[in-house]
Amino acid sequence: MITLKHIHKAYAGKTVLHNVSVQFPTRQLTSLIGPNGAGKSTLLMLIARLLKPCSGEILINGRNAAHYRVSEYARQVATLRQHPQFSLRLTLEELVAFGRFPHSRGALNEEDRQQIDTAIGFLGLDHLRGAYIDELSGGQRQMAFLAMTIAQQTDYLLLDEPLNNLDMKHAVQIMRALRRLCDEQGRTVILVVHDINFAANYSDHILALQGGAVRFCGPVAEVVTRSRLQALYGLDFEILRSERGFVCNYFNPSDQEREHEQG
């Protein structure tokens, strides 16, 4: 269980998160949503311990995150950020092997090799094992990094905009893989996602931030409503529910809204 208590974060005097207290349910997929500058990534980086909160505390399994050693923490929480440019010459398999570093400190044993194979197989990347990371497409590269994070075998996975710059197919592949990690392996996944439709269709839980504060949070069925999304993004939403899931349409305002704007 990840619990945040009265988290406050400011950069150079500018408040980014203000008094945020939330709990992330275990074995579920939680999406952090909200407009740009809402503090989503900052919140995720605080949980990942890549940033330090100005005040407040983060509890991982009931223990203050700041009290874990770096090596110990990496066996509990795995983080994936974006990798815009990657100039290292590594094969996919070598990259995934880094995921075992928290466990083996670089000397791979039989179990490590097995976990690497499992992670590569889990994402169906077997045919790319020997491919160099810098020669892969953006989508494949993101899958490779995800495989590394999976091989880390942590209870908690944090992903910062894992769908950025991906085509729909890769985005769906990644979200389905994350869904399976929750359902089949009982991992807790928290991710920042911009596309409300991906958040609505694949998450169990949604946490919406706005201006550095929690706007709403709860199970998807409860919180994905027209009024809440409209208030969060300042757009006119139409939410269509079908057997295959939600579609949140926000592309063009409704006639009513258009008249309202003109009038």
Binding site: A48, L50, V70, S71, E72, L80, G99, F101, P102, Q152
Partner: peptide, 21 residues
Amino acid sequence: TLPSLDVLALGRDQALSLGVD
């Protein structure tokens, strides 16, 4: 500390996330 140097080359965030101080 050679394996740690490999991890350091992945950058600060990834290195920290992989348990390298």
